[in-house]
C-alpha cells in the first residue's frame, strides 16, 4: 500500500533532500499499523511522534488506510 507522508517538527532531519511541499511516498504492507509505519520510517519513541489523518490522531495499533495523506508530527505543549 502506498502512503503519502508529510513530516513536521524535527522529524524530516534524517531524510536528506526532504521537500516540505511534497513530502515522501512510501510503501507499507496492507494491514500495517501506525506503529509499523513509524518503525518503517525509523522514528523512535523518544521523538514523540503523532500520526494525524483527516484531522484525527491515530492510536499506535490503528490500521493505516490508503488514500489519505498522513501527517506525522511531534507531541508538544501549548505556546
Amino acid at each position: 500500500m502506498k502512503v503519502k507522508v508529510k513530516l513536521y517538527g524535527t522529524l524530516s532531519g534524517r531524510f536528506p533532500g526532504y521537500q516540505p511541499s511534497r513530502g515522501i511516498e512510501i510503501e507499507i504492507p496492507a494491514g500495517a499499523t501506525v506503529q509499523d509505519l513509524l518503525a518503517h520510517l525509523e522514528i523512535s519513541e523518544s521523538q514523540r511522534a503523532v500520526v494525524i489523518v483527516e484531522g484525527r490522531i491515530l492510536k499506535a495499533d490503528d490500521e493505516m488506510q490508503g488514500g489519505f495523506p498522513v501527517n506525522i508530527m511531534q507531541a508538544i505543549g501549548g505556546g
Partner: peptide, 9 residues
C-alpha cells in the same frame, strides 16, 4: 512548531 499539529487537527 504548533502551527502544523493544530492545523492538522
Amino acid at each position: 512548531a504548533l502551527v502544523a499539529p493544530v492545523n492538522s487537527m
